[in-house]
Design a protein around this nucleic acid. Structure first.
Length: 425
RNA sequence: GGUGAAGUGGGUGAGUGGCUGAAACCAACGGUUUGCUAAACCGUCGUACUCUGAAAGGGGUACCGCGGGUUCGAAUCCCGCCUUCACCGCCA
């Protein structure tokens, strides 16, 4: 959620930013509505506060008169206060109404893109920030996509998942399950080495938490909702981990706070179909290690680079060909100011698969969650950042496809201490 | 799930209708003093919104788990909910 003062003081920046997100003139009208509602709100607030002050003052007089035994005079003032009460409750309901409208409008305004974000309307317009300059792996003629390798080597079983749960819930087995676990451990260890504290959060969250990171109300359809207890299955560890500091004021000395978490992620992914979602390309449950940072606003873009470098390091160690995209205004998430996507080349499918998304949200999330830091006397919103490091299912897909040989699937050497085997044959 | 008790500022904890945004102590911060990384003493020490001011600051309002109610007036009384603790039940 954008800060009202920011909108008020930087209207042109906001307009330019929203245009990058392809806001039409018509949709931009929301800004003037927001500002005028805010004016109304202040006006009501001032009047209301005045009436309340009056009530408090008169009530005190009643108390004093009672002590003196001047009951009649007290009764006169009581009547006065009773009259005030009507206008107070009227003002209170106006205030609540205005604030509700203001909030719901504010929730429709996405984050302002960083100046480096390219304009554009779809993924076609994303900018390649770092291309893969070495040769792409070329597989032999009979190379198989990962879903066929899966059954050949008994790595995972989607049909079985359908039997147990439904489509999009893979069952990993044998060396496949071990590979999955090896990757999780490897990613967590790398994050720990880089100074992130490991967290194991709940996999279900309440409404306030889902609202904090912006899953509600914008992405409600994306989440599994446990209606009986009104809980949501997390679509990413970002949700519980970022909310750890909801309504918390950190000391500037504590920044940056760095946290990492492995969790399964649950996504409904309504309405997807076709070859692009075959196998592990898009599933309802997948494993992911997330890295999250809470940082001083002056340093958050350095931190973003640091996180990008961390993900790069992982992919290099796994010996996977990848490229980095700078997302355009039209493809960027609602809450992000700048996002880099990592795509790994899947040789058998001959396409790039998104395996990580690293973003700086600036104060957009922290404003909703009131995550602040104290520096001297000043209390300010901090910047939140997060990134996948990494999303498992597609990494597994890429490893399976790229590393297939006539003898079997070769495990990247960095993973062998974790898997305990060096080939899946 | 049942029964009972409790939820106050960073912590401990006082407060049962007006003198309480809240005592006291601890922690923290600033200072004085002291031949010494201690002690003593003094001071500061919640958050949000709002008005005013160039600013420093000053005024007002709200908040004592959350939401409602009673009252001229609520941390304090009433109702609902949540959470924690204890015991019981169930259980990996």
């Amino acid at each position: 959620m954008l800060q009202l003062n920011f909108i008020r003081e930087n209207q042109q920046t906001v307009v330019d930013g929203l245009k990058k997100r392809n806001f039409t003139e018509e949709k931009l009208a929301v800004l003037t509505q927001v500002l005028s509602l805010d004016d109304q709100r202040r006006q009501i607030q001032t009047t209301l506060d005045g009436s309340l002050a009056e009530r408090n003052k008169l009530s005190k007089e009643v108390g004093e008169l009672f002590k003196k035994g001047a009951h009649q005079e007290a009764d006169v003032i009581k009547d006065k206060v009773n009259q005030l009460k009507d206008s107070i409750s009227e003002l209170e309901s106006q205030l609540k109404d205005t604030m509700d409208r203001l909030d719901s409008l504010l929730l429709t305004i996405p984050n302002i893109p960083h100046e480096s974000v390219p304009a554009g309307s779809s993924e076609q317009d994303n900018e390649v920030a770092q291309a893969w300059d070495k040769a792409l792996p070329v597989l032999e003629q009979q190379a198989l996509p990962h879903w066929e390798l899966a059954s050949k080597y008994q790595i995972f079983d989607l049909e079985l998942g359908t039997k147990l749960t439904g489509s999009g819930f893979p069952v990993f087995r044998g060396k496949g399950a071990r590979l999955e676990r090896a990757l999780i451990s490897f990613f967590l260890d790398e994050a720990t080495k880089a100074g992130y504290e490991e967290i194991m959060p709940p996999l279900m969250v309440n409404e306030a938490t889902a609202r904090g990171t912006g899953q509600l109300p914008d992405k409600e359809a994306q989440m599994y909702h446990v209606t009986k207890d009104d809980l949501y299955l997390i679509p990413t560890a970002e949700v519980p981990v970022t909310n750890i500091f909801r309504d918390v004021i950190l000391d500037v000395e504590q920044l940056p706070v760095k946290m990492t978490a492995y969790t399964p992620c649950f996504r409904r992914e309504a309405g997807s179909y076709g070859a692009h979602v075959r196998g592990l390309n898009r599933v309802h449950q997948f494993d992911k290690v997330e890295i999250v940072q809470f940082q001083h606003p002056d340093k958050s873009y350095e931190t973003l680079q640091e996180m990008v470098a961390h993900v790069e390091g992982l992919l290099n160690k796994l010996e996977l060909p990848f490229r980095i995209l700078r997302l355009c205004g039209g493809d960027m998430g609602f809450t992000s100011a700048l996002t880099f996507d990592f795509e790994v080349y899947s040789a058998a499918q001959q396409r790039w698969l998104e395996v990580s998304s690293v973003s700086n949200f600036e104060t957009f999330q922290s404003n909703r969650m009131k995550i602040r830091y104290r520096e001297g006397k000043k209390i300010q919103l901090l910047h939140t950042l997060n990134g996948s490091a990494l999303a498992l299912a597609r990494i597994v897909a890429a490893i399976l496809e790229n590393n297939q040989t006539p003898e079997g699937i070769v495990i990247p050497s960095v993973l062998r201490p974790y898997t305990g085997f060096d080939i899946i044959a």
